[in-house]
Deep mutational scan, measured.
Amino acid sequence: MSAKKSPEELKGIFEKYAAKEGDPNQLSKEELKLLLQTEFPSLLKGPSTLDELFEELDKNGDGEVSFEEFQVLVKKISQ
């Protein structure tokens, strides 16, 4: 996936994966893993990378990643 996506496209991608289980407005760690493996495969170099990335993105510590938290990752990789 190209990092150059419109905000609407990014929101659609986020919602597609977030709706798989639990809260449709939040990504669980498994949903984030699936999204990254599919859309940004070069970001995941191993299991520790996912854990570190999830911890970094989950700013409020609720165990899930909101769209706002996800946007931090998108901004970081599009620079």
Rank of each mutant, 00 (worst) to 15 (best):
M1P: 00
M1R: 00
M1T: 01
M1F: 02
M1D: 01
S2W: 04
S2N: 15
S2K: 15
S2Y: 15
A3K: 04
A3C: 14
A3L: 12
A3D: 15
K4E: 03
K5D: 12
K5C: 02
K5F: 10
K5S: 09
K5Y: 13
S6N: 03
P7G: 04
P7Q: 15
E8D: 04
E8R: 08
E8A: 07
E8G: 07
E8Y: 05
E8P: 03
E9G: 04
E9Q: 14
L10I: 08
L10Y: 08
L10C: 00
L10E: 02
L10N: 01
K11Q: 08
K11D: 01
K11P: 01
K11W: 01
K11E: 07
K11C: 02
K11H: 03
K11F: 13
K11T: 02
G12N: 11
G12D: 15
G12K: 13
G12Y: 08
G12P: 08
G12V: 13
I13F: 02
I13H: 01
I13A: 02
F14K: 00
F14C: 00
F14I: 01
F14W: 05
F14M: 00
E15M: 14
E15R: 07
E15V: 08
E15D: 08
E15K: 09
K16Y: 05
K16R: 05
Y17V: 01
Y17A: 04
Y17W: 10
Y17T: 01
Y17D: 00
A18K: 02
A18R: 03
A18H: 02
A18N: 01
A19C: 11
K20C: 01
K20A: 04
K20L: 06
K20M: 14
K20H: 07
K20D: 07
E21W: 02
E21F: 15
G22F: 01
G22H: 05
G22L: 01
D23K: 03
D23S: 08
D23P: 04
D23Y: 05
P24A: 05
P24Q: 12
P24F: 02
P24W: 02
P24K: 14
P24C: 13
P24L: 04
P24I: 13
N25H: 12
N25Q: 06
N25C: 10
Q26N: 08
Q26I: 11
Q26Y: 12
Q26V: 05
L27D: 00
L27K: 00
L27C: 12
L27P: 00
S28R: 06
S28M: 02
S28A: 11
S28W: 01
S28E: 07
K29M: 07
K29G: 06
K29E: 03
E30L: 07
E31P: 10
E31I: 13
E31L: 08
E31V: 09
L32A: 13
L32F: 08
L32E: 00
L32T: 07
L32C: 05
K33W: 01
K33F: 10
L34T: 13
L34G: 13
L35M: 13
L35N: 00
L35Q: 00
L35G: 01
L35V: 13
L36K: 00
L36G: 00
Q37Y: 04
T38K: 15
T38N: 07
T38C: 09
T38P: 00
T38S: 08
T38Y: 06
E39W: 01
E39G: 00
E39A: 01
E39V: 01
E39M: 03
F40D: 05
F40Q: 02
P41E: 02
P41T: 11
P41N: 07
P41S: 14
S42V: 07
S42Y: 08
S42P: 12
S42I: 09
L43G: 08
L43S: 13
L43I: 10
L43Y: 12
L43N: 05
L44R: 09
L44M: 07
L44S: 08
L44V: 12
L44C: 11
K45G: 08
G46M: 14
G46V: 10
G46I: 11
G46T: 12
G46H: 13
G46C: 09
P47Y: 14
P47M: 11
P47W: 10
P47D: 10
S48P: 12
S48K: 14
S48Q: 15
S48H: 09
T49A: 12
T49V: 07
T49L: 07
T49I: 10
T49H: 14
L50A: 08
L50Y: 13
L50N: 05
L50S: 09
L50R: 08
D51R: 06
D51Y: 03
D51S: 09
D51E: 06
D51A: 09
E52S: 11
E52F: 06
E52Q: 09
L53F: 15
L53K: 09
L53C: 08
L53W: 12
L53N: 15
F54K: 08
F54A: 11
F54L: 14
E55A: 08
E55N: 05
E56M: 08
E56V: 10
L57E: 08
L57Y: 13
L57C: 13
L57M: 14
D58V: 07
D58K: 11
D58H: 05
D58M: 09
K59A: 14
K59D: 10
N60D: 14
N60L: 09
N60F: 03
G61R: 08
G61C: 13
G61S: 12
D62H: 08
D62G: 09
D62N: 07
G63S: 07
G63F: 04
E64H: 14
E64L: 07
E64V: 06
E64Q: 15
E64I: 05
E64C: 13
V65F: 11
V65G: 01
V65Y: 15
V65M: 13
S66Q: 05
S66I: 05
S66R: 08
F67Y: 09
F67L: 07
E68P: 12
E68T: 10
E68Q: 05
E69T: 10
E69Q: 12
E69K: 10
E69N: 02
E69C: 06
E69L: 11
E69R: 07
F70N: 00
F70Q: 00
F70K: 00
F70S: 01
Q71I: 07
Q71E: 15
Q71S: 12
Q71H: 09
V72L: 11
V72H: 09
V72N: 10
V72D: 06
V72M: 09
L73T: 06
L73S: 02
L73P: 00
L73F: 04
V74P: 02
K75Y: 03
K75N: 03
K75G: 10
K75M: 05
K75A: 04
K76S: 04
K76H: 03
I77Y: 04
I77W: 03
I77T: 03
I77M: 03
S78C: 00
S78I: 15
S78W: 05
S78T: 15
S78E: 15
S78M: 07
Q79D: 02
Q79M: 13
Q79P: 15
Q79H: 08
